[in-house]
Design a protein around this nucleic acid. Structure first.
Length: 493
RNA sequence: GCACCGGUGGCGAAGUGGCUAACGCGUUGGUCUGCAAAACCAAUAUUCGUGGGUUCAAUCCCCACCCGGUGCUCCA
């Protein structure tokens, strides 16, 4: 079965097949490190993570490059406002970005490429373009890409160039261009801004050039897939194509993967509406990282998704169900005797469905549905004590495949929440920490065990009032007790 | 204005020209339990925005309309 993916370039489904040595060469536009990442950013990175995890599950090797944009207007503005050197400022937010990615279980790309560490490559690329007059120097010392030299401009986004009239929207500081559509590849130095001395003259790179230069540096002129948020399609990716293909005269990325924006509570996320959330905001409100991950992955990447707090609590319940089942399967004893043919067949069928769903443009919603089908069937069989070792192994294999993609079964939420709390305390943001969180996090496993033991003793003496009081108390601290036949088990909610 | 995407049960969300319209959450009743929790069972859409059309047959194709969202400018 092919891994079929929608290719924005050409707007059609297409099997994703690495061009050589079974290695998927992919580039993903990373963050501009000027602030903490918000959930919209992470929806994109999360779906790219699913793509890379699934490609690997299917046996591909990965060479995934992600850039860090560590010089741009917003960075310069914010660093100046914070009275910090740019390098120090970007280092802080790059670190925060990766902490957040780790918290959400997003795997690190094989190669992280920083714009400021690849200035030479960008300059060389601009020079190549300049040699053929595809890039030109304006009077103020900035360099621009001459769109007139690239007839295919617009092939990705389907933009009609006629619609972008000359002179329609001209930046105040970009009055030197030959055509309004031309975009900056190198920006002349302005007072007080970061600047590099180069053969092009002093200045800093334009936004688009870094991705072209770094992608080609690490992946070659042509590579398998380029990913990013839908907003980057135009102009960013269009410009990357123009720069890269003008220089190499080869196809740049063969496959383009764009993740749609999300809405928050039905509206576009924006600070002015007040529905703008960073990962840290949510963590401090008491939402678990795994739940956020699962919710952001529950709607397939090409669909707009509406992020809501109701959705968050639903995802929380769904994860609880999955984890409970995974624990149950892990602890189950295989039954001797005849295999349950219906169950075995169902597991095989749903395992196939799981893969078929992901192979069909990474349909995460359908993939998780297949797993839930097995959760119910498995629970029924487990209740009936009619599960063979073979079926248990098959169910565990499906859960493992599921978790290789979704990565929510193993509970690492407390440590992630604690890290967010520590950060808030360090940054003087204590007010943001939900009060009940401190309560929850402060109780240790040993405390819980002691109370559980005391409650069991109370129960044995049929002192149910005491037993229930302990249970209620623990529940307030986020600990749920379950009295099973084999004894009491507990979990943090 | 131009372009694009979507409108499926109480909520979220798959899906298909024709078998009982997945799955999750929620709600109600039941089993289990000292009571809970977990798990299971049952009930929760004669119906897929509205109006036309094509077809033996449409939620799925076509047209119009209404509603929501997005892009066209920095943005994941």
């Amino acid at each position: 079965m092919d891994l079929n993916l929608f290719n924005t370039l050409g707007s059609h489904m297409e099997p994703l097949v690495p061009e050589r040595d079974n290695t998927l060469r992919m580039y993903c536009c990373g963050p501009t490190v000027y602030d903490y990442g918000h959930i919209g950013n992470f929806r994109t990175f999360l779906h790219v993570d699913v793509l890379r995890r699934y490609a690997r599950l299917r046996g591909m090797n990965l060479k995934h490059v992600m850039n860090i944009t560590d010089v741009d207007d917003k960075i310069i503005r914010n660093a100046t406002a914070a009275n910090m050197p740019i390098g120090e400022y970007t280092a802080k937010f790059e670190r925060a970005f990766f902490e957040d990615m780790d918290a959400l279980g997003v795997e690190r790309p094989e190669i992280i490429a920083r714009a400021t560490e690849n200035i030479d490559e960008m300059v060389a690329l601009i020079q190549r373009l300049a040699q053929q007059d595809t890039a030109y120097r304006a009077e103020d010392g900035s360099w621009y890409f001459r769109i007139a030299k690239f007839p295919k401009y617009g092939k990705l986004s389907g933009k009609d160039l006629e619609g972008i009239e000359d002179g329609a929207r001209v930046d105040v500081d970009e009055y030197e261009k030959d055509s309004a559509r031309d975009f900056a590849v190198w920006k002349a130095t302005k007072p007080g801004e970061a600047s590099w001395e180069t053969p092009l003259g002093p200045g800093r790179p334009g936004w688009h050039i870094e991705c072209s230069a770094m992608a080609m540096k690490h992946l070659g002129d042509t590579f398998d897939l380029h990913a990013g948020g839908e907003d980057l399609m135009f102009p960013h990716h269009e410009n990357e194509i123009a720069q890269s293909e003008s220089a190499s005269h080869k196809t740049f990325a063969r496959h383009w993967f764009h993740v749609r924006f999300l809405l928050v509570e039905g509206q576009k996320m924006s600070k002015s509406i007040g529905n703008f959330y960073t990962l840290r905001d949510l963590l401090l409100m008491g939402h678990k990282a795994s739940v956020i991950r699962f919710l952001l992955l529950s709607v397939p990447y090409r669909h707009q998704m509406n992020f809501t707090f109701d959705g968050l609590s639903e995802s929380g319940s769904a994860i609880d169900r999955l984890r409970t089942f995974a624990r149950r399967v892990g602890a189950a004893t295989p039954q001797a005797g005849t295999a349950n043919a219906t169950l075995s067949a169902l597991i095989a069928e749903k395992t196939a469905s799981f893969h078929a769903a992901l192979s069909n443009d990474l349909n995460t919603a359908e993939a998780r549905a297949a797993v839930f089908d097995i959760v119910r069937a498995g629970n029924i069989a487990l209740d009936a004590k009619a599960v063979t070792g073979e079926d248990l192994a098959a169910m565990q294999a499906l859960l493992a495949a599921f978790d290789a993609i979704f990565d929510v079964l193993v509970d690492r939420d407390d440590e992630r929440t604690c890290a967010a709390i520590a950060w808030a305390q360090h940054e003087g943001r204590e007010a943001q920490i939900a009060p009940h969180l401190l309560n929850t996090v402060s109780i240790t496993d040993a405390d819980i065990e002691a109370l559980v033991a005391e409650r069991s003793e109370a129960k044995r003496r049929r002192n149910f009032a005491r037993a229930d009081a302990i249970r209620t108390d623990l529940l307030d601290k986020g600990v749920v007790l379950e009295d099973g036949k084999a004894g009491v088990s507990w979990k943090r909610k």
